[in-house]
């Protein structure tokens, strides 16, 4: 389908409970030479040994790294929000971190990433909501759609924790509701 090849530049992904496995499935499906930027907020605990980053790097063609304050967003790189910091997208396509209080009990907040990405990239964002046991991300996904971006939501039936995708479908609506494996394949074709 041709419309997929429009001009998406970044993919933002929000995931909570069950995120590790879900991200592995998706990221491993991205083809060699994948040239979109991927920015991920996963609600996770502090990981002193960078295990998460190292592990994901072995599974995907993307270069996965923890997002750093004020760095430029580059194609082919997957940025993961550091635990305990919000991750925001600036209008000049750089990243900022913040230690503002948690939003909906979450820091990093999926909503904060999604809303700022929507304003900075407008129709060039694809927002992805995966498994999770809260309602973070639905407000941000709604904003992505409002500015012409695309919303992809994991089929709640296939999610380890269905609440987050269910809420996102209810509040933001979806352009595509897919299983994890299909989300990976689908995103792979956006490049």
């Amino acid at each position: 389908m041709n419309f997929l090849k429009t001009d998406h530049e970044i993919i933002v992904i929000g995931v909570s409970t069950g995120g590790f496995k879900a991200l592995e499935v998706i990221l491993s499906k991205l083809p060699e030479g994948f040239n979109l930027s991927v920015i991920i907020v996963q609600h996770r605990k502090k990981d002193p040994d960078d295990f998460f980053i190292d592990y994901m790097n072995k599974k995907t063609s993307l270069h996965i790294k923890e997002a750093e304050d004020k760095e430029s967003i580059k194609p082919g790189v997957g940025y993961i929000a550091p635990p305990e910091y919000h991750l925001l997208v600036e209008m000049d396509h750089t990243l900022s971190l913040s230690v503002d209080p948690p939003l909906k009990y979450a820091r990093p907040s999926i909503d904060m990433l999604f809303e700022t990405a929507a304003e900075a990239y407008e129709s060039k964002v694809a927002g992805v909501i995966l498994t999770g046991a809260n309602d973070d991300g639905s407000k941000g996904l709604k904003k992505i759609r409002k500015y012409g971006g695309m919303a992809i939501i994991q089929d709640p039936v296939t999610a380890e924790a269905p609440m987050m995708p269910k809420n996102a479908i209810k509040i933001a609506g979806a352009d595509h509701i897919l299983s994890l494996a299909n989300i990976g394949k689908f995103l792979g074709r956006l490049s």
Binding site: L88, E90, T116
Partner: peptide, 8 residues
């Protein structure tokens, strides 16, 4: 200031 944050 970082604009995204101040804007919020």
């Amino acid at each position: 200031y970082s604009r995204a944050s101040i804007k919020r």
